[in-house]
Design a binder for these strands. Structure first.
Lengths: 335, 335
DNA sequence: GCAGGTTACGTCAACGTTGACGTTGCCTGA
DNA sequence: TCAGGCAACGTCAACGTTGACGTAACCTGC
């Protein structure tokens, strides 16, 4: 392959270049860059000057190769169409920047194989840690990775391993609040739209709902999307027309449910009350406004980064019990 | 600092480990890993076996250090609360994965200093390229970076440099469609809510609107958010009560405008028509449904990655004219 | 006046990989 | 029969940085 590049390849400056310019050894420049100490103020000044003059930037690959740290973390989400995840990502990035970290964001579309592929690649990139909403069936794989020394934070799932920290929203309490609220407004028969692709052992909303509603609980599992909620509701209202209150896995699902219910001729909230979960921005905007369980998404992100730092290298502490963040019931017009 | 780690440090396998196990030189293993050829099938089989057995993964830092490629790109957006950007990000990631690239996502909050900081950091990480919606005043800085050899794609702005490619939606046509549509439904006085923090030379929606409406055009600049739209509308309807049609910078702004207008006692669309821009998912859900100019966000992302590959190393071609993607008018109930 | 310490450096090797180039051994054709 | 070529390796250095260690000069206290 012929190289047709005709402008000067803009050689990046290295420690050596800076050192040569100042007349010291690269090691001394390195010391200045990393503020290790062991240099005079005069030297420091001259080095700093040369650095700005040459536009020197440390090569993080070389540094990472030897220190085994890259100041980089991965944040892995099942999807990005649901505004919930970008908002958590916002929190993750903010907290990362505060700690001098960069964030890789990746989307799995709920596919464990994709998750695996992404994590493998991230490991090759020598990330310092990963924060993720695990896909179903990922537990063993995650333990493998942890075994290889990758610090991780899993959100809304529990994996028992010394270098995996767990972070959760208090969904159990959220579901209680939702059901209690629906009951208190006189609803007699409740249905729930659960998430088809939740990891089986972490169907916490569904489990709590069932425990509150008993054996006859009406639960349909659907995709955690607008369409999933729509379709599930059509079926639910057809099979059990007596249902007059729905708790949905998340707000997108709930909004789909509301639209489906109205198409089926139900008035909201008169004939059917709907409560969602997350409190995405959209929920306050739809009509009628969607009642929901609010999760503090920004905080979820920042806490995840904090936790990750705590399971990271240098900290021998075993991560404590899963950290649980509180939730809040927001009542709007849909219930 | 004392090391209290008590489980075996999970030494990652290297080329040397694999080589030792198989009884060949690391160079041969490298050849197999990279499918360079120059090895027998028997050797390949034994190497592959050892690789899976040891769980060997190439160290991308070491590889990048020598090849100067990391198969990594940065995608930099002004914010992530506006669903528009995550959806573009989705496209970017999908296209990236197809090409074997990883994506760094970063959010600037519209601050040029943050953008600069982020890009600098990315460069230190030796990314292969960057895709970004530039912040105002970033042009010179971007040229600096391009000069240092970073391939870039800027979206919805134009920067003239051989290693910067430009990608745009046909917003001019979009604005024409919107204004034409509002006029054709009988609106007499139009207002526009523009984006306060657009780079001055790329206020394309605003410029087109002004060129269509003439000198007396009613334009207010606001933050490109729900609240920005809300506030701008309050002011606009107070100062110019005769306005009966609004074109907003984006859908979030438009939805804010609708809410503000209704609070001010206007019926939509009877008293005031509103048209947005983007067609985010929310726009079909709000009530009344928001008419808007649809931008194919996924495609924007994938085209950006394609373009980036074309300005990347090895391709001597100067990027052609800015690539322009078509837009589409979606009429709903708000107009 | 000198042991001992401190400050401000320098030297060297190593991190894991690949580019450039060298070296076998076998096959081929005239 | 042997020059020439090719397949299948191996060797060595380099990428840019930092950890470990060495050292010269100077200071300190007694």
């Amino acid at each position: 392959m012929t190289r047709k590049r005709n402008f000067t390849p803009p050689q990046k400056a290295t420690l050596h270049d800076v050192a040569a310019k100042v007349g010291v050894s690269p090691r001394t420049v390195s010391r200045v860059v990393n503020k290790e100490g062991g240099f005079s103020e005069a030297t420091e000044a001259r080095v700093m000057e040369a650095i700005t003059e040459l536009g020197y930037r440390p090569n993080l690959l070389a540094r990472g190769l030897i220190t085994n740290r890259t100041n980089t973390l991965a944040f892995i989400v099942p999807n990005i169409d649901d505004p919930f995840f970008p908002e958590v990502a916002q929190g993750v990035q903010r907290a990362s920047l505060n700690r001098g970290l960069s964030m890789f964001l990746a989307v799995t579309n709920g596919d464990p194989a994709v998750e695996r592929e992404l994590l493998d690649r991230m490991i090759s990139q020598a990330i310092d840690g990963a924060i993720l909403f695990p896909t179903p069936g990922a537990r063993e794989h995650l333990k493998d990775l942890a075994e290889q020394g990758l610090p991780m934070v899993v959100i809304d799932d529990v994996v028992d391993h010394p270098s995996i920290a767990c972070l959760r929203s208090d969904l159990e309490h959220g579901v209680e609040l939702a059901v209690e609220h629906l009951r208190s407004t006189g609803r007699r028969t409740l249905g729930m739209i659960a998430n088809r692709s939740s990891p089986p052992r972490s169907r916490r909303r569904e489990r709590t709902f069932r425990s509150l509603e008993g054996e006859a609980a009406h639960v349909i599992r659907a995709d955690a999307t607008y369409d999933g909620g729509h379709r599930a509701t059509v079926q639910m209202l057809r099979d059990h027309p007596e249902i007059d209150g729905i708790f949905a896995y998340n707000d997108l699902t709930a909004i789909g449910a509301m639209d489906a219910a109205r198409s089926a001729g139900r008035r909201i909230p008169e004939d059917l009350a709907v409560v969602g979960c997350d409190d995405i921005a959209m929920s306050a905007r739809v009509s009628p406004g969607l009642s929901t369980i609010r999760i503090d998404r920004e905080r979820l992100g920042t806490e995840a980064v904090d936790l990750l730092a705590r399971v990271g290298p240098g900290e021998g502490e075993r991560p404590a019990e899963p950290l649980t963040l509180p939730v809040e019931l927001i009542v709007r017009q849909s219930s």
